[in-house]
Amino acid sequence: MKKQFTIILLMIAFVANAQISANRFFYELTFKPKKDSAKTEKVMTILDITKDKSLYRDYTMVAQDSIVKVAVEEMQKSGVFKDMSKMITMPKFAFKIEKEYPGMKETYLDRISSGFTPVQIGYNEEPNFNWKISPEKEKIGDYDTQKATTEYGGRQWTAWFSTNIPFQDGPYKFKGLPGLIVKIEDKDKNYSWVLKGNKKIENFEELSYAEKISPGGGGKLTIVPREKFEKTMAQYKKDPFATMRPMLTKEIMDRKMPGSEMTVGEMIKKQEKMTRDFYDANNNPIEVSGPYRVEY
């Protein structure tokens, strides 16, 4: 009996410590940041698929995990503030999209600052992609694909999917085809995702190092109706530091950052300008219309 009890405890410990594995698919996204310009940019995005769900996000911060970790550890040891904006490339897209398996219910997440603490705000959605599958086929890279079209978010989309990759998933919110989406773009090529490769992640972690060291693992998550989400994000983009400003007394603003000649006020002013410039330079959203769409 004692031996059986020990075996049960070992089994429980094994399950508790079992590492989650994921299939990571790399999508190169070519997009037009500004709606009145033909200029395009490129960024690598990832779709991580586990047995329970998928997670789509910008790969930029995940790819810099080791750089961020070294910089943070150096600051902790020296006690000297270091402006990480000079060494870290910030992501073009801060949002994440989770799809639960097998039901494929979606959660859209984004981050904003509330006072001195980052928070995550999101909404649940079950978008209906009315796919029209065509008999047309095409070889894209190493993948044999088939064509499908749909309309979503005010844009007309053409997708190419592969039945050889048995996931009814894809980048961004796209899903529901009988195979993984290998390529998808809108009619005017504002946004175009192309699958560039994949690999197995044995010890998969959802949070990047930067998120893990942030208060609450990147911020407390609040799920709200999409209408409220859109209005909240619109207000935030107009004035990113609105909730923080009442807390910033002159005494706080005049303090020097540890080991730096830069004051708290100067740092916040710099961050505010960077945030405003970012949103001004990225005013061509993936979804241009919808029942809750708010112009930022």
Rank of each mutant, 00 (worst) to 15 (best):
L9N: 06
L10R: 01
V15N: 08
A16I: 14
I20C: 06
N23E: 15
Y27E: 07
E28K: 13
D36H: 00
K42V: 03
T45R: 04
K51I: 03
K51H: 12
K53E: 01
Y56E: 05
Y56T: 08
V62I: 09
K69D: 08
K69G: 00
E73M: 14
M75W: 05
K77C: 13
S78H: 12
V80E: 13
E98I: 15
K99I: 01
Y108A: 07
D110P: 02
R111I: 06
R111L: 04
S114G: 10
Q120G: 06
E125L: 10
E125D: 05
S134R: 01
K139M: 01
D144T: 04
Q146K: 11
E151F: 15
Q168A: 14
P171W: 06
K189N: 12
N190S: 14
Y191M: 02
S192M: 00
V194C: 14
E202C: 03
I223S: 06
T232I: 14
P240A: 04
E251A: 01
E251I: 10
K256P: 02
E261R: 10
G265P: 05
K269I: 07
T275C: 11
D277C: 14
A281D: 11
N282H: 15
N284A: 02
N284E: 00
I286K: 02
E287I: 04
E295I: 10
